[in-house]
Design a protein around this nucleic acid. Structure first.
Length: 962
RNA sequence: GCGGAUAUGGCGUAAUUGGUAGCCGCGCCAGACUUAGGAUCUGGUUCCGAGAGGAGUGGGGGUUCAAGUCCCCCUAUCCGCACCA
């Protein structure tokens, strides 16, 4: 019988569906294992061959784990809120829900053809109200929580209200937007709006004024990459930096835990490093610098910073530095243009210049600023600070190179040991003073330097009480000193910023928030989900409000607890609802938890479900989510952990990043002089006489062009003539991004139709290591297809042979057990390309050995089942089994079949003092070494010498040292 | 600029983790079979050389009896961050 995949694959796919083969129950006696893929955004273009790569890898692992006796959770769903559907809606007027539904159906169809073992009963969609109910629910929990830095934990905001009423901010260390200090009496004296305003400072989901790129003309916030030279990319309208009230998540509260938690994760080093960089933890010191107040008096800035009241009696400001040891080298201070102190300290003479600079800096877009990073700019305020350790007077400057969002927006500049300060000092001719040297006496004139000495190595020089200390010791000594003096302390800073959570968009989760007297209130959780309303159009409103501003039924009736007409808003009992929606990462941050118990309408997921599955054991997806989804999901999980819902602090124990699949484009070469003439690639002078044109890879086979299909492909090629080589037209090729415009998109459906799903699955794995980026090249798929046909044939002859039950030969057992061993090890380390090679070798060997012994062949069916489930299922049933091969038992190998039983020595001497021997079972290394020593004694080829030492190394090689 | 990764035949890759480099597959060459196929099978295929032989894992140095693998210095490509004090 022929290997007829066209018949066999749909048959078993239907059988699996009817028998609910992949349905997974929560609980049972088996050990549990959770294998998850990053769920896709269902785009209109459908799947290309790059998408299933990770799904196939995780499917293999999931099926393998199941065969090893685990209860495996392996779900799939859709990240179905997002921008493309909305933009398509704006252009065509089609409702995003309709196009999304259609795209999902197409994705499902494509996925089903590849034979995945997903439990589709657990499917989730982020745009489904039953799902986003819990996204909204989590948002309300965030809104109703604060973060206690002492306990390193989120707590209910109600608890904080009690604390404020009892003790004010006394003794508290809280994550906040800006440091506040007040007493219990003050708190009690405030009215509700004022209290709400204060609480907003501590909520984990909070409203705050955040600088954004605002385009008035388009009525929307733009991302940095949507703005060029202060103009919007689309339309060319002016864009301004503007503070806008936006929802944010206080992810910075979790910076420490997000950073520390990385250590125990089985993630690639590179991805951990990406996250570490993004979180940007740096240890250093916060130091208060007193102002040298001229004639006009300046009010001391009041308030807390990092939970501490300004300890300075005199007016002063705080800086952050990672190099406290260089404090003796400070020659100027720099404030960021947004710094609140600027207005207060600028001298009248400098006022005009400083104001001009601040205005200029403020109006620059993020993009402009970043493009001119190397350009030095700044202005002197006329004011001075006092170095608290030397009592020196130090000028205070303002410059863009100091960022408002990091540290305190103010720095002490040490030009000798910081390249940016160095550039600034050189530009404005400020003094540079060396305070660190590689050797204690290696002091030179900084005026002769070409660059600053930034390295944290060497010794302190010219540095008062730390002179002569190693840099590391000097850092500690200075911090101790400033702590002792009460002017600063050891501290940690993070680069991570809070996540802006508002989008002026339609196709996203509505915020379960309404506005009462101007302050936001959360909907009662029993009223969730708050469903996305219908709107007349998907664009912003004429007044610049988000698309939800078009909704006529978008107000909250507090008394009747329901959504009502906007016209009924009276701000007494009926209030306006929030108009922006949540961003893409909202729905994807907790979906892995929902899969554990996806149909629960009482809770996000039940306690039993999460106690059973705990966390994702293996997560497979692209590394491009390293600083987005993978950070947000960890944050989301940690928050749910604090609430007592999640049972693990980290969501994804092991993470594998599949590499990007690039496209392999094909080209035809059109004559420069004759538009209808195409010259084959290797014809003489082809390159100089022609221009390359992309040609659809689907009408090219092994770089040979199908001429007829090419003429039909596009009307302008109808009259095409060809200059061939060896009767063929050979195309050129290049590696490019896989995209429609390059005509290099391989559709998995076409390959399934031509070679079958099993061949596609094996070939995707055979292409190379899963983690590695690689170009898609269909040319090799024939080899894998041939292998499956050989594999099939092996069984076909075994099943047709009457004598098939005879004793297996030693050779056959050796091949079998080698294969089991290799494949098992390969799967464990996610090296699927080598597993496929192993199958090929095994099949070749078995074919050569004319194996028809079913007892040897049967375990192979189980081995290949994770990779090629359809053919495995078919053969499994032909071998007489009733149930699915998915429930078989993973074969074990026995070392005894793997060792050689011949022992000959020495079999070869290659002139480099090296023997090759075969070591039989039961012979120890020292026996072998002794035997070789004895046999080597007095041998001619050793020139009469006696070996001094015999070194045994694995791999049947013995080295002799004379 | 900082950080991470990668580099092996014409191509994708493999190498039991320091032990005979090039497994497996594509492609190519030669052959077999044939009712001629997008079929199957056999042999060959790192490079130079007719051959004996020599060279060889991006380049240069080092450690080792032994290096694709470990260390140092370059070069190229890819990815992430980018004035983060």
């Amino acid at each position: 019988m022929e290997y007829n995949f066209n018949e066999l694959e749909p048959k078993w796919q239907a059988w699996w569906r009817e028998n609910h083969t992949y349905k997974v129950a929560n609980g049972g006696t088996k050990p549990h294992f959770y294998v998850l893929d990053m769920f896709p955004y269902p785009s209109g273009a459908g799947l290309h061959v790059g998408h299933p790569l990770g799904y196939i890898a995780s499917d293999i692992y999931a099926r393998y784990k199941r065969l090893c006796g685990f209860n495996v959770l392996h779900p799939m769903g859709y990240d179905s809120y997002g921008l493309p559907a909305e933009q398509y809606a704006i252009q065509t007027g089609q409702h995003p829900a309709v196009t999304t539904e259609r795209n999902i159906a197409r994705y499902r169809e494509q996925l089903d053809k590849i034979g995945f073992s997903f439990d589709w009963d657990r499917e989730v969609r982020t745009c489904d109200p039953e799902y986003y109910k819990w996204t909204q629910w989590t948002f309300i929990q965030l809104f109703n929580s604060y973060y206690c830095n002492q306990a390193q934990q989120a707590r209910p905001i109600a608890e904080l209200v009690d604390i404020f009423a009892k003790q004010g901010t006394e003794g508290l260390d809280l994550a906040c937007t800006e440091p506040l200090a007040f007493t219990a009496d003050e708190w009690r004296s405030w009215d509700e709006p004022k209290r709400q305003q204060v609480l907003m400072n501590y909520r984990l989901a909070y409203l705050a004024d955040i600088p954004v790129n605002w385009c008035a003309e388009l009525g929307t916030v733009l991302a940095n990459d949507e703005v060029v030279n202060g103009l919007s990319v689309r339309g060319g309208y002016p864009v301004e930096r503007k503070l806008m009230r936006q929802w944010s998540l206080r992810i910075t509260a979790y910076a420490e835990r997000l950073s520390k938690g990385l250590a125990d994760l089985e993630w690639s080093d590179s991805l951990k490093e990406i996250q570490r960089n993004w979180i940007g933890r740096s240890e250093g010191a916060a130091v208060w610098f007193p102002l040298d107040v001229p004639t006009t008096s300046v009010d001391a800035p009041t308030g807390l910073f990092m939970g501490q009241v300004n300890p300075q009696p005199a007016p002063s400001f705080e800086i952050f530095t990672t190099r406290p040891d260089t404090i003796f080298g400070v020659t100027f201070m720099v404030l960021c243009p947004e710094h609140e102190l600027i207005d207060q300290i600028t001298t009248p003479e400098q006022k005009a210049e400083v104001e001009a600079y601040v205005t200029w800096a403020k109006n620059r877009s993020e993009r402009e600023r970043q493009a001119e990073v190397k350009k030095v700019s700044g202005v002197f305020t006329g004011a001075y600070a006092i170095n608290p350790l030397t009592n020196e007077k130090i000028p205070i400057w303002v410059s863009e190179y100091v960022l408002a969002g990091y540290g305190t927006g103010a720095i002490m500049a040490v030009p000798a040991h910081d390249s940016r300060d160095f550039a600034f000092a050189r530009h404005f001719n400020l003094p540079i003073r060396q305070v660190v040297a590689l050797e204690k006496d290696a002091v030179s004139d900084p005026a002769t330097w070409e660059e600053s000495m930034d390295a944290k190595t060497g010794y302190s020089v010219n540095s008062g009480f730390v002179t002569g200390m190693k840099v590391k010791d000097a850092m500690k000594a200075v911090i101790n000193k400033i702590e002792e003096m009460g002017i600063g302390r050891r501290t940690v800073n993070y680069r991570l910023r809070d996540a802006i959570f508002s989008r002026q968009r339609y196709w996203g989760e509505p915020f379960p928030i309404y506005y009462k007297n101007g302050y936001p209130c959360a909907l009662p959780v029993e009223c969730l989900p708050l469903e996305l309303p219908e709107v007349s159009e998907f664009k912003p409103t004429s007044t610049g409000e988000p698309p939800l501003g078009h909704a006529t039924r978008w107000a909250w009736d507090e008394k009747n607890r329901c959504v009502v007409e906007t016209s009924k808003i009276d701000n007494q009992t009926v209030f306006p609802l929030e108009l922006s929606t949540m961003p893409g990462f909202a729905g994807s941050s907790g979906y892995y938890l929902r899969y554990m118990d996806p149909r629960n309408d009482k809770a996000y997921f039940s306690k039993e479900a999460v106690d059973y599955w705990r966390q994702v054991d293996l997560y497979v997806g692209g590394a491009e989510h390293g600083t987005g989804h993978l950070i947000y999901a960890r944050f989301w999980n940690k928050f749910l952990f604090d609430l007592g819902l999640a049972v693990c602090d980290e969501p994804f124990r092991r993470l594998v990043n599949q590499g990007m699949v690039q496209g392999r484009s094909n080209f035809v070469y059109r004559s420069k002089t004759d538009n209808n003439l195409f010259i084959s690639k290797n014809v003489k002078d082809c390159a100089s006489k022609t221009v390359p044109i992309h040609v659809d890879v689907n009408i090219v086979d092994n770089d040979v062009l199908d001429i007829d299909k090419f003429r039909q492909w596009r009307p302008e090629f109808k009259e095409a003539r060809f200059e061939l080589e060896d009767g063929k037209y050979i195309c050129g090729w290049e590696i490019e991004k896989m995209s429609k415009s390059m005509y290099n998109v391989q559709n998995p459906d076409d390959l399934v139709a031509r070679y079958g799903a099993d061949t596609l699955r094996l070939y995707e794995m055979f292409l190379g290591p899963v983690e590695q980026a690689k170009p898609w090249d269909t040319n090799g798929i024939e080899g894998v297809f041939r292998f499956l046909k050989k594999f099939w044939k092996l069984f076909d002859s075994g099943l047709n042979n009457q004598n098939a039950q005879k004793e297996p030969t030693k050779e056959e057992l050796k091949i079998l057990h080698q294969t089991i061993k290799k494949v098992t090890e390969d799967i464990e380390r996610f090296s699927f390309n080598t597993s496929v090679s192993t199958f090929m070798i095994c099949t070749n060997d078995m074919t050569t050995a004319k194996t028809d012994n079913l007892s040897v062949l049967e375990p192979l069916v189980v081995l290949i089942a994770p990779f090629a489930p359809h053919i495995a299922e078919e053969l499994w049933h032909r071998l007489g089994h009733e149930g699915s091969v998915c429930d078989a038992e993973w074969p074990k190998y026995d070392e005894k079949y793997l060792v050689e039983d011949t022992f000959t020595y020495p079999v070869s001497f290659n002139g480099k003092m090296r023997f090759t021997i075969d070591l039989p079972a039961g012979v120890t290394q020292s026996d072998a070494v002794e035997t070789v020593m004895a046999s080597a004694e007095g041998q001619k080829w050793l020139a009469g010498a006696t070996p001094k030492k015999v070194i045994f190394v694995p791999k049947k090689i013995i080295n002799i040292v004379i």
